[in-house]
């Protein structure tokens, strides 16, 4: 067992896991409140990445700073999507809602393809290559920042959930929908806001990823399925769960890459996914359903 290799796999896994947790944080909120599997999550992230890219190319705005602009913009976009597309189908069969978000994903991805063509773009910030070593393990600063962003967003969301009125309303709605309505919570508004916040989070995630990941219309697909796995693993609606879930998935993938033959690392993640779905569908941190 090569110690250096193991260390690198652990470090990379944690960093990668941070990125997954980052992408999943918005999704778990949407999952928790609206109870839909949002297939368009990756596509929204992709749009967020393009937004940061164009701001960089146009006015030289650093991608980290661009979050201040893109997050609010995507909040509004998220609310709009929820109102126009999701809300009218609120009472539709669950699988139809799934297909709805799938159609939305196809639409958004190909809108990007039409607007900006399929070639890869890179956002080259001057500090893109910054890295340091821990022992023999490489740590890329940009990935560390993304992982840090994941933690920050997770705690921010958690804080919002615990300590604000909005958070209380969201919790009420997630746990007991009819009861929430009876108490006078504006369910429609909360749903829109939740989707908006989720979209803002994933756009921020996109911005944080641009220093080290290419930008193209199909970029969201790389993260979509991982985000689902993380959300299920961590528990629907549980932000800290999404963070921990992300770390677990990242570590599994990275260790798989280091020690399994071929490209079987993908298998590890799916096996975990199926096991969780079968034996603990509420996730590691969710409450078992009665």
């Amino acid at each position: 067992m090569n110690g250096g290799l193991l260390l690198q796999a652990l470090v990379s896994g944690l960093l990668l896991g941070g990125v997954y947790g980052l992408v999943a944080s918005g999704l778990t909120l949407i999952f928790g409140v609206l109870r839909i599997i949002n297939f368009a999550h990756g596509a929204v992230m992709m749009l967020g990445m393009y937004a940061s890219y164009w701001l960089w190319v146009g006015i030289g705005l650093d991608p980290y700073a661009s979050v201040l602009l893109t997050a609010p913009a995507f909040f509004v976009l998220g609310v709009a999507i929820e109102r126009l597309v999701i809300e009218p189908n609120r009472d539709a069969a669950e699988h139809n809602q799934l297909l709805l978000t799938l159609g939305l994903a196809l639409f958004l991805e190909n809108l990007a393809l039409v607007l900006w063509q399929g070639d890869f773009r890179t956002l080259r910030v001057p500090y893109a290559n910054a890295s340091f070593v821990i022992g023999e393990a490489l740590v890329e600063v940009s990935r560390l920042v993304a992982a840090g962003g994941a933690v920050a967003i997770a705690f921010a969301l958690y804080g919002m959930l615990r300590y604000t009125d909005l958070g209380k309303a969201i919790r009420a709605l997630s746990e007991e929908r009819e009861g929430a309505m009876l108490v006078g919570i504006d369910v429609r508004r909360i749903r829109g806001v939740a989707f908006g916040i989720g979209s803002a989070c994933v756009a921020a995630a996109g911005a944080l990823i641009t220093p080290f990941f290419y930008i193209a219309p199909d970029v969201g697909e790389s993260f979509n399925i991982m985000a689902f796995v993380v959300v299920v693993l961590g528990g629907m609606g549980n932000f800290l769960g999404a963070l921990v879930g992300g770390l677990i998935v990242g570590l599994a993938e990275s260790l798989g890459a280091a020690f399994l033959p071929g490209s079987l690392k993908q298998l590890v993640v799916f096996v975990i996914f199926v096991l969780v779905l079968l034996f603990r569908p509420e996730g590691l941190f969710g409450r078992p359903r009665g």
Partner: peptide, 12 residues
């Protein structure tokens, strides 16, 4: 896998 966002482990 083409879709992978990170190749550090493989390259290590």
């Amino acid at each position: 896998s083409l879709r992978s966002p990170d190749f550090t482990s493989e390259l290590a």
